[in-house]
């Protein structure tokens, strides 16, 4: 740190007695020293007691002060360099911050986008879902629509009647294949409970039972002639393998047109 010249008596506004930071300033101290010595010299002269030594001391103080002042251009140059450096720091900081901000923005933007795999999976699932139409949804929708629609005036209600139903009548259904199959299924189930260990179709049955639905398929239907048409899936895939059909049925066949509990 810069040293201060040796002062003998700190004056009233001498740096080291009032403000500490100022005492580190060489120029400030030199000014104080000059001021003090001048004051003493002036006092000695005005008191008719001029002291030549004070004049010598003043000369030394003056030399010291102007020696310090010679440093001013150097300080000026340092100041210019410091300011330039500060500006360069600011510039670089600004540029770097801009890049980082932009990167962060891009990052958040990208993060906001969903992942490709996820997108594809969701799309596939959605499409698959769309392939299957839930019947209750369909019926609900139809019922809803029915509330707001009415029979077109040109439609002859007479054409819709038990005689024109496209589906078989109730009694016909009771005597139909589905009913018989269903009866046989429940008979078969009873029979199977008695012959649990010898049957090899337990897996098929257990899968049926898991569904807790009246399964239109029984082991007996496998013995049905191949000519019997398999049930349709709405994806129009046509004839399916028995196994895969079963799998499909297990998953989604909700087409419970005949519920033995209801009738």
């Amino acid at each position: 740190m810069s040293t201060s010249t040796g002062h003998r008596n700190p004056g009233p506004d001498r740096s080291d007695s009032v403000e500490n930071p100022l005492s580190k300033l060489q120029v400030y101290n030199d000014i104080c020293e000059f001021e003090d010595t001048l004051g003493k010299l002036v006092a000695s002269v005005d008191r008719f007691n001029p002291d030549l030594e004070l004049a010598r001391a003043l000369i030394e103080a003056d030399k010291q002060l102007y020696k310090s002042l010679e440093c001013l251009p150097k300080y000026d140059e340092i100041d210019t360099r410091a300011k330039t450096l500060d500006e360069e720091h600011r510039d670089t900081d600004e540029k770097t911050i801009r890049i980082l901000e932009t990167l962060t923005e891009c990052g958040s933007d990208l993060n906001a986008l969903p992942m490709l795999e996820q997108v594809e999976f969701e799309r596939e699932t959605m499409l698959k879902q769309r392939e299957k139409v839930f019947t209750d949804v369909l019926l609900d929708y139809a019922m809803k629509l029915a509330k707001f629609t009415h029979v077109p005036p040109t439609f002859d209600k007479g054409t819709v009647g038990p005689n024109n139903f496209v589906w078989p009548a109730e009694d016909a259904m009771r005597r139909g294949m589905l009913a018989i199959a269903s009866l046989r299924a429940s008979e078969g189930a009873n029979a199977q409970e008695q012959q649990a260990s010898s049957e090899q179709k337990t897996s098929e049955k257990s899968s049926e039972n898991e569904e807790a639905q009246t399964d239109i398929r029984s082991p007996d239907t496998k013995e049905e002639p191949v000519a019997r048409r398999p049930s349709f899936g709405f994806d129009g895939s046509g004839a399916k393998d028995h196994e895969s059909e079963k799998a499909d049925d297990d998953i989604d066949l909700d087409l419970d047109l005949f519920n033995s509990e209801e009738f």
């Binding site: 008719f48 030549l52 004049a55 003043l58 000369i59 003056d62």
Partner: peptide, 20 residues
């Protein structure tokens, strides 16, 4: 006293003038 005074002042002036 004033002689000595003037003399010292004169020396002071000389000292300062020689310096700057």
């Amino acid at each position: 006293m004033s002689d000595a005074y003037a003399e010292t002042l004169g020396q002071m002036i000389c000292l300062l003038q020689e310096y700057k």
